[in-house]
């Protein structure tokens, strides 16, 4: 496994510039929280990382196809299947059902595990989606707003679950909550600060952040050591 390096990533939809020369380096096994307001291009960045979208410019290195698992902003579950079946769907054949059931049992009441997910509440579905992303054998885990719709206690349980089952994988979480990031022990990344200051690279997208107020991207990776939990 190697670090994920995103360099010079630029993406625009028509005249609208979404990402402009984004530079990030995610160290192998690090935990990162992407703090970004809605509509700032965080989902687009994730989609490019996942290979669902082509960047106009720049590259993403260090993510092998099929070796990244994701929890989307939407649940994206198979409505007719039970939580256990939804998780096991992405896992190799002959995966033991009882193991998946135990995993789900850590964040969900056990009586809902045999119900089709269309009968579950929004918070339960969110957790199923989370367990599915964590259970998938990947090198990088991307979680897009994993804690929406969860109350404080559930949030804590979900964070504990993530930390416990991360198994040393690189973790990239998009969230609004500063507290969540702290509980995860994550390095904070601010999307608008990831844009490179070099004027020639950012020229692809018209308006850019003032170079003086944006810190250099590489400083972000330095202060993560003291926050590592695992």
């Amino acid at each position: 496994m190697s670090a994920v390096v995103i360099s010079g990533l630029t993406k625009s939809y028509g005249a609208h510039c979404v990402l402009s020369s984004v530079e990030v380096r995610l160290e192998d096994g690090g935990i990162y929280c992407l703090m970004a307001p809605s509509g700032s291009g965080k989902t687009t960045l994730f989609r490019i990382m996942l290979g669902l979208e082509q960047a106009d410019e720049g590259s993403v290195e260090g993510i092998e196809p099929g070796k990244v698992s994701v929890m989307f902003q939407e649940d994206r579950l198979c409505e007719d299947l039970t939580p256990v079946e939804n998780v096991i769907l992405l896992l190799p054949k002959r995966t033991d059902r009882s193991r998946v059931r135990n995993l789900l049992g850590e964040v969900l009441p056990s009586d809902c595990l045999s119900q089709p997910v269309c009968e579950l509440s929004g918070g339960m579905r969110r957790r199923v989606s989370l367990v599915r992303a964590i259970a998938y054998p990947s090198q990088v885990v991307v979680l897009d707003e994993p804690f929406t719709g969860l109350d404080y206690a559930m949030r804590r349980a979900a964070i504990d679950f993530i930390v416990q089952h991360r198994a040393g994988r690189t973790l990239l979480v998009a969230t609004h909550g500063q507290q969540d990031a702290q509980l995860l022990g994550a390095t904070l990344l601010h999307l608008d600060e990831l844009t490179q200051r070099n004027g020639t690279n950012g020229a692809a997208c018209g308006s850019r952040i003032d170079p003086d107020t944006a810190p250099a991207a590489d400083t972000l990776t330095d202060n993560r050591e003291n926050k590592e939990v695992d």
Partner: peptide, 19 residues
């Protein structure tokens, strides 16, 4: 959305069709 989910996680053709 579901097809994207299947694509990212390399769901097999058969499972994508069936589920």
């Amino acid at each position: 959305h579901m097809l994207e989910m299947a694509r990212v996680h390399r769901l097999s053709r058969w499972r994508t069709f069936a589920y």
